[in-house]
Design a protein around this nucleic acid. Structure first.
Length: 644
RNA sequence: GCCACUUUAGCUCAGCCGGUAGAGCAACUGAUUUGUAAUCAGUAGGUCGUUGGUUCGAUUCCGACAAGUGGCUCCA
């Protein structure tokens, strides 16, 4: 007999070799029907795998993340079975679960696959699922496994086997499909009730663009049709919040073929948001001791050779223009220009920290396949600043920048974010990273210390640093689940030296400042794209392009409406009168759809009492009040940059 | 850059197997003077992304290019 400990601490005895599924059955049949896998001593196992020793056990169902991913991984195998039966000779690479479904990479031997094929595959998968085939686990000696795939001529699985040790190799078979797989899997295919293959994509073998491109099929499956319907419904909802759709509907930005890909045109409504964001940034930075500067959009080649950007990033800069025998580049970053401002006059330690801020316009020649709405563009406006400080000042300055992030996150109601500390990869010194092993180690440790002392949760990611130093990226998620790198906070120990930046110390010797690159609001493009999705287009009052719409019941009250408009304008509130010859219901509907925060309905009663009937977008009628009262409240809401 | 798909009126979309296009909303005109999410009627609007080819004839079939989208690679 063996002892099984359950999550609630209960301990029960079972026969040696019992499976998690049997244990579930001993508790209840209903539970057994839901068990997808089991966590045995913290490891995810097949529910059908015998347990021989005392263990802790957690039964995993659809409600557990590990249950879901086991379900999707098994679905990938089911899809592979369908692909193999429809397209014999297909070779498979890997088929992992993802956050929302699964994919399988495969070599179809030059065959092309279409959307119609996906429907056929779905049908086949449903057929196979109904056969309730079990996923059979079998431990296989390496030699046997190699022979099996050599006979199949499958170089991909042989490559996988190369990295595995004898004794760690298992095969899983369901129906007519056998795959090299570490598992685990769900008990049988019958659990998979609803199937949707979502897309076809090319994916480089081993994620390397130099390798052959395999065909990747994405899919998602569910234990019942209802969940699939809900999922599809959710996708529809997400589409409505897509910043590209909202950006068009609300007149925020547009793109034009003649202007060029990745070059957004900001419409008047979008420009208002830009100006409000800049106002926030300027106020915040002024209070934090920053000084504003303005720099040109181009610079000579020599500056980018000095900075060291050219050898690293030439491919993502627009090609140079040649004038008077000199090459000029559009700037892809503001830092060198700012360094030149630092260098423009002698600096003393008393001048430090020197904080130079600019909403800088940059141009980056992003690969065509990378462009994506406002999120990935070729012309961007960065909430940029560079802080020049001494080593002693560094921690305090770095912390202050992090504090600024937190302040902004509060204003915008961003409560889910992760700071990623990006480090260098020692083996790539001199290639991807400046060859200063000691400085890398030192600065990475400095940043780590600051994060620890400020109790900011963070994760460390190797091989993601900037070429001139470690950095912190702030990852955020829009309400439709899209992930962004919003802000960045970078240490730079390299460019100060390259630009020969110096300050005089109190002992009359010279030193090079450390530089912090920071962009808490990222770029206007990405941030406004994010805000559109974050707010679903319903901007808080201070950001809303149009803050108040005055809706006269009929044009008899136009004069009164216009007098209110004048009062609002005098109070610096962005307002318009809907002077169309339409019924009030229509005016309200259109204004609601344009997501204007406040509507002021005015008719006979309001005119006689010199009042307005206030209506809040999405909330309905708030009742009647005087114009002065409304203006007073609205101005407070704007000044405090309230969130809703 | 690579794989796949998409591109029809200002917007959202229809157009089966090739015979030069249609709806709703928006716009414009007129009527209506309206009380908290769509008043009615009429008018106008498109070389069907661009460009080659096949064909008596191409929005429809094939190719190239461009832009967009879903991924891959990339992201100072």
């Amino acid at each position: 007999m063996i002892k099984i400990t359950f999550p609630d601490g209960a301990v029960r005895e079972y026969q040696e070799g019992i499976t998690a599924l049997d244990i579930a059955k001993s508790i209840s049949e209903g539970l057994a029907r839901k068990v997808l896998a089991a966590s045995v001593n913290g490891q995810v196992w097949d529910a059908t795998r015998p347990i021989y020793h005392d263990s802790s056990l957690k039964l995993l169902t659809w409600d557990d993340a590990d249950g879901k991913s086991t379900f999707w991984h098994s679905s990938a195998h089911l899809m592979a079975e369908a692909v193999e039966s429809l397209f014999p000779g297909t070779k498979f690479w890997v088929g992992p679960p993802t956050e929302k479904g699964f994919y399988y990479d495969m070599d179809l031997g030059g065959r092309q696959i279409t959307e119609d094929d996906l429907r056929t595959l779905e049908k086949k998968m449903n057929e196979l699922a109904k056969q309730n085939n079990i996923y059979l686990r079998k431990a296989v000696p390496k030699k046997e496994a190699v022979e099996y795939f050599t006979a199949k001529g499958d170089e991909y699985k042989l490559d996988l086997l190369n990295g595995l040790n004898d004794g760690d190799i298992t095969f899983y078979t369901q129906g007519n499909f056998t795959d090299l797989c570490r598992g685990p899997h769900i008990p049988n295919t019958g659990f998979i009730k609803a199937i949707k293959l979502t897309s076809i994509a090319g994916a480089y073998w081993k994620n390397d663009a130099n390798n052959k491109q395999l065909t990747r099929i994405y899919g998602v499956t569910f234990p019942n049709q209802k969940e699939l319907d809900e999922y599809l419904q959710m996708l529809e909802e997400a589409k409505k919040r897509d910043h590209r759709k909202l950006g068009k509907e609300l007149g925020i930005f547009t793109m034009d073929d003649d202007v060029g890909p990745g070059l957004p045109l900001w419409l008047p409504n979008g420009t208002i948001i830009i100006e409000e964001l800049e106002r926030l940034a300027k106020e915040t930075e002024q209070a934090a001791g920053y000084k504003r500067v303005v720099t040109p959009h181009i610079a000579k080649e020599s500056m980018y050779l000095t900075s060291g950007h050219l050898p690293y990033y030439q491919d993502s800069m627009y090609p140079p223009m040649e004038l008077e025998g000199q090459k000029y580049y559009l700037k892809a970053m503001n830092c060198p220009h700012h360094h030149k401002i630092f260098a423009a006059e002698p600096r003393s330690y008393k001048d430090l920290p020197l904080r130079l801020a600019e909403y800088g316009t940059c141009y980056r020649y992003e690969q065509s396949g990378e462009l994506f709405g406002l999120m990935r563009v070729r012309c961007l406006h960065m909430n940029d600043a560079h802080i020049y400080c001494t080593r002693e000042q560094f921690a305090e300055e770095f912390r202050a920048v992090n504090d600024m992030y937190i302040k902004y996150f509060k204003i915008f109601g961003i409560d889910k974010y992760v700071m990623r500390l990006s480090l260098h990869e020692p083996s790539k010194l001199g290639q991807k990273y400046i060859n200063e092993p000691v400085l890398w180690k030192e600065t990475e440790e400095m940043v780590r210390q600051v994060l620890k002392e400020s109790n900011i949760p963070y994760v460390e990611v190797p091989d993601e640093g900037a070429f001139y130093g470690p950095k912190i990226d702030v990852q955020i998620w829009s309400t439709i689940g899209r992930e962004f790198t919003l802000a960045t906070n970078q240490v730079d120990f390299a460019q100060g030296r390259r630009f020969k930046l110096e300050f005089i110390k109190n002992d009359n010797t010279f030193d090079t400042p450390l530089i912090i690159h920071r962009a808490p609001l990222g770029t206007h493009e990405r941030f406004i794209g994010f805000l559109l999705e974050h707010y679903a287009g319903k901007f808080p009052l201070w950001l809303a392009p149009l803050q108040v719409k005055i809706l006269p019941i009929s044009d008899k009250f136009l004069d009164y409406a216009n007098s209110i408009l004048q009062s609002l304008k005098n109070a610096d509130i962005r307002a318009e009168v809907d002077d169309r010859n339409e019924k009030i219901g229509k005016k309200i509907r259109d204004t609601e759809l344009m997501k204007v925060p406040y509507m002021l309905v005015v008719g006979e009663k309001e005119m006689n009492d010199q009042k307005v009937a206030v209506r809040r977008q999405g909330k309905g009628d708030l009742g009647v009040r005087s114009v002065e009262e409304f203006i007073g409240e609205a101005r407070v809401e704007i000044r405090e940059r309230r969130g809703d």
